[in-house]
């Protein structure tokens, strides 16, 4: 106990309480989980439609592909910190406030979805077109091909890009935290950095690293089980 007190003198007093370490961990988990969930569903949907409406896709449709492709490109091109600021009025409109983990979800989802959608698209494009053609020749509908071929054959690749995306989301939550989202990012900057309490910054970093490694580990575990 003595060593911990010596190494992290400023961490112990703010372990619990408002804006404390445990609350920050909870907020980071909250932002990461809901961003991953919402952006995950949206990203998979958009990714699938990008693949389907592509010139070689099952539902080839140039205008739809063009629009989706451009939206994804534009949102991916905006630096996240600027997206946070730009979206602020919009966030207030739908969440009611511009501050806090829930408000942070809006820019997090909008910043993550296009990134993940593109990853999903690329993941699904690694599937041999011959397998898709075979399914088509067997008389499967496009919807059946999406669920039974694309999502199934692409699953290990989807998990891989999913893990990649979640890890990048954790990075984004830290940034969102810095502008009022709360979480470990906020703790590291608002407390650790600005009050010159380096031990707090270190603790925030350590917990973020633990989170990243945990997600990577779980992802690898799933990917391994799926590999044949």
């Amino acid at each position: 106990m003595n060593i911990i007190e010596k190494l992290f003198p400023n961490v112990i007093p703010i372990w619990t309480g408002d804006g404390g370490v445990t609350q920050s961990i909870g907020q980071t988990l909250y932002m990461t989980f809901f961003t991953a969930l919402i952006a995950g569903v949206l990203g998979i949907l958009i990714g699938i439609f990008l693949v389907l409406t592509d010139d070689h896709g099952l539902l080839a449709n140039r205008p739809v592909y063009w629009i989706l492709d451009k939206i994804v490109n534009i949102f991916r091109a905006i630096p996240f910190i600027i997206l946070l600021a730009v979206l602020n009025p919009f966030t207030r409109l739908i969440v009611g406030t511009g501050i806090g983990p829930t408000a942070a979800l809006v820019p997090l989802v909008l910043g993550t979805t296009p990134f993940f959608a593109r990853q999903v698209q690329n993941a699904l494009l690694t599937i041999d077109p011959g397998v898709i053609e075979a399914a088509e020749a067997m008389g499967l509908s496009p919807a059946a091909i999406v669920f039974r071929v694309y999502l199934r054959e692409g699953l290990s690749e989807l998990i891989r890009v999913g893990v990649l995306t979640i890890i990048s989301v954790i990075g984004l939550t830290a940034m969102a935290g810095a502008v009022g989202g709360g979480g470990l990012g906020n703790l590291a900057i608002a407390v650790g950095y600005q009050r010159f309490q380096n031990d707090v910054t270190w603790v925030a970093m350590i917990f973020i690293l633990i989170l990243v490694f945990l997600i990577q580990f779980i992802g690898d575990l799933f990917a391994k089980r799926l590999h044949h």
């Binding site: 041999d128 011959g130 397998v131 053609e133 075979a134 088509e136 020749a137 067997m138 008389g139 499967l140 509908s141 071929v149 199934r152 054959e153 699953l155 290990s156 799926l226 044949h228």
Partner: peptide
């Protein structure tokens, strides 16, 4: 799609599902 079920097809690269 129903008619396609009456026409089987095999391919040079087999096109099996690896998963």
């Amino acid at each position: 799609r129903q008619e396609r079920r009456r026409i089987g097809m095999i391919f040079q690269h087999f096109n099996l599902m690896n998963s």
